[in-house]
């Protein structure tokens, strides 16, 4: 592994640790529903402040179950990751192609 790759791997590891530590340390144990969404908690806070508040509009489409919802979230992440991977793959391929072309140009006169 090059030094560059190692640094990137360490950075990724740090991100993973930041996500896993709250779970491992049980930081959600004091809650009725651990690790719920912050938006749901905000909805609860709103109804605490203003018990009479009724949302006056509901989503046009709502995923019928948690499974379908997580599938759609996964789809969103996959679309993004796919485009990013395409970008970096294309760049790498182009760079290698250019290098090879330059190499061939350098080698050509020697073969004559």
């Amino acid at each position: 592994m090059s030094r560059n790759t190692k640094i990137n791997a360490l950075l990724l590891l740090a991100v993973a640790a930041l996500a896993v530590l709250p779970l491992v340390l049980g930081l959600g144990d004091h809650k009725e529903e651990p690790f719920a969404g912050a938006d749901a908690e905000a909805e609860t806070a709103i109804t605490e402040i203003e018990p009479d508040y009724e949302p006056w509009f509901s989503p046009l489409y709502e995923p019928p179950s948690g499974e379908v919802e997580s599938a759609l979230f996964a789809l969103q992440a996959a679309l993004g990751a796919g485009v990013l991977a395409y970008y970096f793959g294309l760049r790498r391929g182009r760079r290698q192609g250019e290098q090879r072309a330059a190499q061939a140009l350098r080698d050509a006169p020697a073969g004559d």
Binding site: P22, L27, G28, D29, K31, A36, G37, A38, D39, F73
Partner: peptide, 10 residues
């Protein structure tokens, strides 16, 4: 959506 120190996710 990632877990955070407050015991909730964002």
């Amino acid at each position: 959506k990632l877990p955070s120190v407050t015991g909730s996710c964002s």
